[in-house]
Design a protein around this nucleic acid. Structure first.
Lengths: 227, 227, 227, 227
DNA sequence: GATGAATGAGCATTCATTCAT
DNA sequence: CATGAATGAATGCTCATTCAT
């Protein structure tokens, strides 16, 4: 997808096209996978002809790389904010978890694509996406390390703990049902507590970051796509 | 896929064919997904022509349902054994976790297919697989309930804890690398400890079930396919 | 097949494509039957790739239904004209027979497909085609009934006579050879006479409708397809 | 299909196999056409495996040629009998028509295959079948010629009349319904009368040959297949 | 006599993609 | 900006047929 339209504000109907295409892709791919959805169906979902699609994107795989990169960049952006605005390993980790869980609960389609379609990317493009993912995970790694150094966390295998926590929190996008019995904030706070247990930091008080995170998610994920 | 060949020992190339097909499918699907692998490639991987494939299976989707059901039945079988042979919520949960982790670390391909291709199944067949998955999760649910009742576990939202734990342990199949820095037993015991923390049962002693589980996995997962 | 191209004159290769496809189908199917001709061969005969074929049609069966419906609609249209422009059972039947025979002699391929491939249509589509056929036969039925009522025809079993006559006249498409010994007008008039005998109306004078019918056939069957 | 089993009487289950195969072919082909039915379905209908089928027949096309030849030989045989046992063009034609109609009404499946699948036969085999058909039609031709010579028939174009009559009478196999409103004998006698009209021989008395023909059809068409 | 296993070629259909307009 | 037309390659699957047992 061509990088940017330059102007600061959407001007013509066409401006929304890229956005609509990405939205259609996310909707469809999150449900049936990259290989399970054809270009024609994608075009129909976006309200365009399949030929017009190619005006806005490169190949199908380019579109996937674009969608994944944008999603990951938003995750990175959010994690960066948390690090800037929350000090101390405990509060930071608490916020990171609540943010991750909220993002995955509020944006299950985007996150499922980001998390599950890496294998559909070939060599070169995969590398770029993986390094973005690593960039995101680095916030977790750093915070866990920090907590271990300060004595706030007690974990023997911090790498494994990080992976275990990420898998646990990412899983929310696979099972959370907004119409189900659990309130969103319960899930977020609940996972924050589980994380504190996993990290051996139970005595820490768990600040409720749900509203703040919700605002952050809203700010970062709404709008024309975080390009 | 037709049920069984009956005879006790593989005699001709044909005997192993069904098995070879399933193995090929697991290998390929775990890496590129159900929709990412064509019938011809599957056949080649199994050492057959694509026409011969259809001698042994119904449709491609039938094969997927077969592979998933067999995998899940093995998981159920193993969980059943744990429940029979380990008494008390703590020891049981400990064994369930170590078993799940070991299975996912030793059989990452099978478990990734089982866990990730549900969406490729259409209506009727999906139901069958989902009920098997529910059957498996019931062992976890029951054990958590038991531990909460006995006071061994302290969790506020047991449903969420179960899902969080399952996602966490299942994730092992996505990241564990046998050539990597972590020993398999460390991962298994490590997750058992994380689970005990998640469930608020830290004071419980964590019996090392790795060898026993390894035997169980070997017994249940080797052989002609757990039909 | 999409309805029409609107423009009054063929301009580019694409305009005639639908027409060319139907013509190819009629040519091939009339000789080897619907199931005897593959899509690739059809495409080749139409001068397109098999993928392009699907740009213009739905399924192969859709194309058959389209071809049959168009043929039958033309038959109906012609019979309607006869009924409007010829009064009295005798003259009408005479014209209907000559028209039917001429159509089947001049358009043996279209009529053979219309007459012989009903079984290749599945349920729903078959019904539509059958009702068109019934519509056409209704003109014969009505005319025979009229002739019986007026005393012009003497037949005991009018239903059987209608079927017998239709089979007899339709058969022309199966054996008439324009390069053979019989002139087209002889065949048409000859059948008109046989029909008058079958209906017990020998004393009636047989007007030669060959030229008029030929004009009608030319008018109705030429052109972009009678959609 | 290998020509004969030699012995005069069916001995083993296998003896019936060829017969069952032909019967299955006739059943299926008459409904969906030669190209519309696969070998596997044919085998299933005959109660055999598709491989076993090939024990009894050559290729699929060989089987078709066999089925068609046998049918036509039976038609020829019956026409021969008529010629031997009925003297005079009028009575002979009367019997030929009633026999043809009865055969097509009682054996619609066999006759539809005989009549409609010639195009599925390639070059060499088609010639053989066509000459059998010609042999059959020769009885009609000869009888019409005889009637014209003796003054019993008055037709101008005897060739066309023959074809018209054959098409008319053959059509019975396409529309006659034993459960419908017309009795079989009505159809047979009715067509005999239409034929006499077509041939300009109305003054001739129409002997009811239905019972005799029925016997002939029963004799010739029952039994192990008229090989 | 009968069949499971096997296959190359073919089936109807869809794929992602290009391009002239 | 947008699309209808076009296609080579691939899709999942079935074809008629052979052959060792």
């Amino acid at each position: 997808m061509r990088t940017g339209t330059g102007a600061g504000m959407p001007q013509r109907g066409a401006v929304g096209a890229e956005e609509r295409i990405r939205a259609a892709a996310v909707r469809l791919w999150s449900e049936r996978g990259f290989h399970g959805v054809g270009i024609r169906e994608l075009a129909e979902e976006a309200g365009l002809s399949s030929a017009t699609l190619y005006h806005y994107m490169g190949t199908k795989e380019d579109l996937l790389a674009d969608v994944m990169s944008r999603g990951l960049r938003r995750l990175v952006l959010a994690a960066e904010r948390v690090t800037q605005q929350r000090a101390g390993a405990g509060p930071r980790m608490n916020a990171l978890v609540q943010l991750h869980v909220l993002t995955h609960a509020l944006r299950p389609r985007e996150t499922r694509v980001v998390d599950g379609e890496l294998r559909a990317l070939s060599g070169d493009r995969r590398g770029g996406v993986m390094s973005l993912r690593d960039e995101y995970e680095r916030y977790w790694r750093a915070t866990i390390d920090e907590g271990r150094a300060s004595g706030a966390f007690r974990v023997e295998a911090p790498g494994m703990a990080r992976l275990a926590l990420l898998e646990m929190c990412t899983g929310v996008a696979r099972w959370y049902d907004p119409g189900g019995p659990m309130a969103l904030s319960e899930v977020a706070l609940g996972h924050a507590q589980l994380a504190s247990r996993v990290l051996g930091a139970e005595e820490l008080e768990l600040v409720d970051e749900v509203d703040w995170c919700r605002g952050l998610v809203g700010e970062i994920w709404s709008g024309p796509g975080g390009g």
